Amino acid sequence: MSVPGGGAIRVVLADDQELVRSGFAAILDAQPDITVVAEAADGVEAVERIRWHRPEVALLDVRMPTMDGIEAARIVCAETRTRVVMLTTFDRDDYVYDALYAGASGFLLKSVRRDDLVHAVRVVAAGAALLAPTVTGRLIADLIRHRPRQQGPSAERLAGLTGRERETLRLLGRGLSNAEIAAAMTVSEHTVKTHVSNVLAKLHLRDRVQAVIVAYETGLVGSR
Rank of each mutant, 00 (worst) to 15 (best):
G6L: 08
R10E: 09
V11K: 02
D16A: 02
E18G: 11
R21M: 07
R21T: 09
Q31W: 12
P32D: 13
D33F: 14
I34G: 02
V36P: 01
V44W: 10
A46I: 07
E48Q: 10
D61T: 09
T66M: 13
E71W: 07
A72G: 06
R74N: 11
R74K: 10
R81A: 01
T88H: 03
T89G: 14
F90H: 04
D91V: 10
V96P: 00
D98L: 10
Y101V: 15
L108A: 01
L108G: 12
H119T: 07
H119K: 07
A120G: 08
V121Q: 03
V123W: 09
V123Q: 11
A125D: 05
L131D: 01
A132F: 04
T134D: 15
T134C: 11
G137W: 11
D142N: 10
D142I: 14
H146Y: 11
R149S: 05
Q150C: 11
P153C: 02
P153V: 05
L161F: 05
T162G: 04
G163K: 06
R164T: 06
R166H: 06
T168A: 11
R174V: 03
E180M: 09
I181E: 09
A184N: 02
V187T: 07
V187L: 04
K193T: 08
L203P: 00
R208E: 09
Q210M: 14
A215G: 01
L220C: 15
G222T: 09
S223W: 08
